[in-house]
Amino acid sequence: MKEPSLFGRCPYVTAQKVLAGKWSLYLMHLLADGPVRFNELQRRMPEEMTHTTLSRQLKALEASGLIVRTEYRQIPPRVEYRLSEVGEQFRSVLSALEDWGNDYIAYLNRDSKE
């Protein structure tokens, strides 16, 4: 018998599924300061990030309701991404992750010196 999905019932499984993309957290961090254009996001991503991968990741975050894509009909075309209302609620999580990440980096540096 197949076990029922915990998505939408368990907060940990739900968060993990929504943020499953390799670059989800970093993109949420980049968008936390306000709207960012696609090309600017691409410039701020690591070198190995392709246009296709970035586009796919942004579409997944948009489909999850965490970000909003705004297309401006002008020449040349302009597209901006920003956190949605529910994405804005993620700021405190980003802050906590930053604190923990910095503590862990300090731990790694301390551990490598011993």
Rank of each mutant, 00 (worst) to 15 (best):
E47Y: 11
Y104T: 04
T52L: 03
S84E: 03
R56Y: 13
E85M: 12
L94P: 02
A60F: 12
S92M: 08
P46L: 03
E85I: 14
R91G: 07
R91L: 14
E71A: 10
D103I: 01
R110N: 13
S24A: 14
P46H: 07
I75A: 11
G101M: 06
Y81H: 13
G21V: 00
L31D: 07
A106D: 13
I105Y: 12
V68R: 04
A32W: 00
E85V: 15
G87A: 03
L54Q: 09
Y72S: 11
F38G: 09
F38Q: 11
E40F: 03
S84D: 04
E47C: 05
L31I: 04
Y72T: 08
L31N: 07
P11H: 10
D103V: 00
N102L: 14
R37S: 14
N109A: 08
P77Y: 06
P11K: 14
K59C: 06
G65W: 08
K59M: 13
S64H: 15
R82S: 15
A106T: 04
L61Y: 03
A60K: 15
I67C: 09
K59D: 15
A15M: 03
L25R: 08
D33T: 08
K22E: 12
P11V: 08
F90I: 11
R56D: 13
I67K: 07
D103Q: 14
S84P: 04
R9G: 08
G101H: 07
T14H: 06
R37D: 14
T70A: 09
P11T: 06
